[in-house]
Structure formats: C-alpha cells, structure tokens
Amino acid sequence: MSTIHIERVSKWFGHVVAVNDVTMTIGPGITGLLGPNGAGKTTLLNMMAGFAAASTGTVALDGAPTWRNEQIYRQIGMVPEQEAMYDFLTGAEFVLANAKLHGLSDPRGAADRAIDIVEMADAAGRRISTYSKGMKQRMKMAASLVHDPAVLLLDEPFNGMDPRQRLHLMDLLRRMASDGRTVLFSSHILEEVEQLATHIEVMVAGRHAASGDYRAIRRLMTDRPHRYQLHSDDDRRLGAVLVAEGAVGAVQVDEADGALHVQTSDFGRFTQALPKLARDHKIRLYDITPADESLESVFGYLVQS
C-alpha cells in the first residue's frame, strides 16, 4: 500500500501562483480531487507524478521524493486530461510502447491484459485517430495500467465518456481500490465525486479549501449563506414576514429589477417557510431564482471559511 505526502507545497509559473501552500495526504482507496477549472488540480497531479517540481515544499511517495526519481514511475500510473496522443499508432501499438518503456519481461502480454481490462480489445487494431474522446480516455487508461501500478492518478478521467463507459471506469477504479491501491482522480463535478470517492480534497484558486468524506463536503456547501431573487405581488411585505419569521438574515428590495433579494444561512428552514408564509399572508409568488449557485461561488465560500 502506497501513500503520497504533500507538505507545504507551492508552485508558480513566473508571477502566476498555480498551487499555494498545500498540505495533504493521499492514501489507499479512492480520493477525489475536487475543484473548479483552473483550481490547480492538474499542476498538483503533475507534481505527484514527478512530472513537475514544486517551487517550495515537498511531494513524496512512501517517503521518496517524486521529482527526479525514476523509480517512482514503476509505482505510478498517470492518465492525463490532454487528449493529444500518437494518433498514427493503433491502440495496441500505443499500449505496447508503454509496456516496453517500463522494461516489462512480457510487454505484449501485459499490453493485451491492460487493453482487456478497459474493454478495448475490439478496437485495439484501429488507429487512435479514429477513436472517440471516450475511447482515447480508455486507451490512455490501459497504458497507465500496463505495469500494474500501486498508485493511479487520473486527471478529469470521465470527460468525453458515455454513460456506459463511465460506469465501467467507476467499477474498475472501485476494484483497484479494493485491492489496496491508491487511486486519486480530479473532477470539477461534485456529483461525480460523490458516486466514487470515499475521501475528498477540495482545491480552489490554488489553495487547499476543504478535506473530508463527501457528506462533510456537501454539508459545508449546503450550510453556506444562500442568496435568492424573488418576484411576488408584494415584495416589501414578503420581505418583512420572512425577516419576522427568522427564515432569512437579510433582505433588499431592488426597485431597478423589481425583485426581492434575500440571504439565508438556514437553507432548510427557508425552503420550508417561504411557501407557508406566502400562503398565510396571501402573497402570490411568481418565481424564485438562486443568485449565487455557480460552482466558483460555492468553492469560493469554502476558501473564505
């Protein structure tokens, strides 16, 4: 069983800070690296895989540094997000080349087994240029598994996959985790991570924002202040009764857009109270719209908290 330790790691490119003072430990099982696009997930994965050096801090696999350490490549399998591959090769040739680079005693046998694992045997003889994005993802997965690694790092692995391919990959990753392997995959979709990961690490704007199982992360997101925009036939009266009931913490009537803006820290109480109060006070609700439900705003709250 292998463990990745990241200690006070930062990475910058010129004046751009991609990863900022991150500390985390990734152990056996399935960990989801969650965050919006541009959060620093890919940079962090590249440092774990030994493809990039940390500007400050340390990244180690079982106590050994990952940077400039060729030995760790025998323990790590990496599936990058980039779609670019050697399109003039067949899938079988691509995986076989990776097996040979690892110096395996039976490279062809290892390549065939890896291709079978990802269910791409029927398409292995076709050139990669003819593959869909989902097929390319699966063949990259085969190449990363060819040397039977103890650690698997995947960058947005479900991009471009159809529902059947996604379910198959999820089942494969669960089997690998049950064998005691360390599996880490990045995603910007919370529901995707919930289905698969037993532990979640959240990255936002290069910073480590939160850590825990998906219930803890979901609770952090649900319990944050929520803002809504409402339209009714009496916005001022509706705002007054919501405040009196304690269902919201702040209200504002915007004459410009003719809407009532409310903020609440108790999402459950607000959603239960709103229709009841409107009915009891004979206020007609026309619509209610979340005003801050973008992924960036949700993750931004985690950073601030």
Rank of each mutant, 00 (worst) to 15 (best):
E296F: 03
L277S: 03
T66L: 04
L101W: 02
M139R: 01
V204E: 04
N37E: 09
P163Y: 07
T289S: 09
T31R: 01
T3D: 00
R227S: 15
D233A: 04
L260N: 06
G50S: 11
K133D: 09
A150R: 13
D171Q: 14
R279K: 10
I200D: 02
V241Q: 07
D62P: 13
A49D: 12
A84H: 14
Q272S: 10
L173T: 01
E191R: 08
E81Y: 05
L101E: 07
A273D: 11
G246R: 14
P80S: 04
A278S: 10
S305T: 09
V16C: 00
S178P: 00
L238K: 03
G246F: 07
D21Q: 07
N159E: 15
K140S: 13
L153G: 02
L242A: 07
Y228V: 04
S10Y: 03
V118A: 05
E191K: 03
R164Q: 12
L152K: 01
M170P: 00
T25W: 07
D116F: 00
M48K: 02
T271P: 00
D234S: 10
L96V: 04
A143K: 00
V59A: 09
G14V: 09
V17W: 11
M161C: 11
A273H: 01
D148A: 11
V204P: 04
G63H: 04
E119M: 08
E93G: 00
T198E: 15
S186F: 08
K282D: 15
F299N: 06
Y286Q: 09
M135F: 12
A216N: 03
E81M: 03
A84K: 15
D106S: 15
D116C: 12
M47L: 07
G160E: 07
D122V: 13
M221H: 08
Q137I: 02
A259T: 15
D148Q: 11
G40A: 06
A18C: 04
F13S: 05
D179L: 06
T66H: 06
G125Q: 13
S187L: 02
L302I: 12
S144I: 05
V202H: 07
K11T: 06
K41I: 11
T42Q: 05
P275F: 10
Y301Q: 13
V9Q: 04
R108C: 02
D266E: 12
L173N: 04
T66K: 02
L172T: 10
Y214W: 06
S186K: 01
E7Q: 13
T264Q: 11
P225W: 09
E296W: 04
M170S: 12
S129F: 03
L45E: 04
Q229F: 11
R74T: 15
A205I: 00
T56A: 15
Y301D: 14
G38R: 09
G134K: 01
D213R: 00
H231V: 14
S305G: 02
I128A: 05
A53R: 06
S265I: 10
E191P: 00
V253A: 10
A54V: 02
K136T: 10
H15M: 03
